[in-house]
């Protein structure tokens, strides 16, 4: 169980595709003009990621190593084609607003990256969890950026008009780069702080048993929690 939780946390936060690894940037910049577009793109990528991870993981012993990249790309392209048909039929508004970026999910580095680094080596359940976690991490990042840009750029929240105050800069292409840069900086700042605190706590835990090896406070604190 612990292994699955670690995979999930890794994909969601520790190795967040958008803010930590800076992958899939084209879609992130283009489709965060409003929160709803961000959520739509994020969930589309999550769906493709889950399906492609599962299929690649199932076929990992069949695909020869030398032609694995073309094989992965064909699998991903098939999933995107299916998704495109489904969106065209059931959510035509989202289909229109995503435009050319819907077929471009094929060349989203996150999906090929997870296929190559994870799904081609791990069992099906692990790969499925990894796909969902990475996809939801991407969705969360896109939603955060979409909410910021929509709130400042058009004064609304998920399409609900809140006030008339608007800064056009944030919905323009320049604003996309600016908000993305600031989000990465903030994420790096926070994760550095957390890591520093974590390392300080580890150092303290290690030092205390060395002074008094019999009562080991690190372990008892964990048991109480």
């Amino acid at each position: 169980m612990n292994k699955y939780v670690k995979t999930a946390v890794d994909g969601l936060i520790t190795n967040n595709a958008t803010f930590k690894l800076v992958l899939g940037t084209c879609a992130t910049l283009a489709l965060t003009t409003s929160a709803i577009n961000g959520v739509g793109m994020g969930l589309s990528v999550t769906a493709v990621l889950l399906l492609s991870n599962v299929v690649i993981s199932l076929l990992r012993k069949v695909i020869p190593n030398t032609v694995r990249i073309p094989a992965f790309i064909v699998i991903i392209a098939t999933m995107v084609t299916i998704l495109r048909m489904a969106l065209d039929k059931f959510l035509p508004d989202l289909y229109d607003s995503m435009g050319v970026f819907l077929p471009l999910i094929v060349v989203n580095c996150i999906i090929l990256g997870r296929a190559e680094a994870f799904a081609s080596k791990q069992p099906v359940l692990d790969s499925a969890i990894d796909g969902v976690a990475t996809g939801l991490g991407f969705t969360a990042a896109l939603t955060i950026m979409g909410v910021i840009r929509e709130l400042l750029g058009s004064g609304s929240f998920f399409g609900i008009q809140l006030w008339d105050f608007k800064i056009g800069f944030f919905t323009s292409s320049a604003g996309a780069f600016f908000v993305y840069g600031m989000c990465i900086a903030l994420f790096t700042l926070i994760s550095n702080r957390v890591e520093y605190a974590h390392r300080a706590r580890k150092a303290r835990e290690l030092r205390v048993p060395a002074e008094g090896p019999l009562d080991a406070p690190g372990i008892s604190a964990k048991e109480e929690a």
Binding site: V22, S172, S173, A174, G175, G181, M182, A185, T188, L189
Partner: peptide
């Protein structure tokens, strides 16, 4: 915290403004 990608993004932001 601004080193690397963030400062590059801000630079790209100014370039995008020029192209706007």
């Amino acid at each position: 915290c601004m080193k690397g990608f963030p400062i590059t993004m801000v630079a790209a932001c100014f370039m995008a403004m020029a192209f706007y």
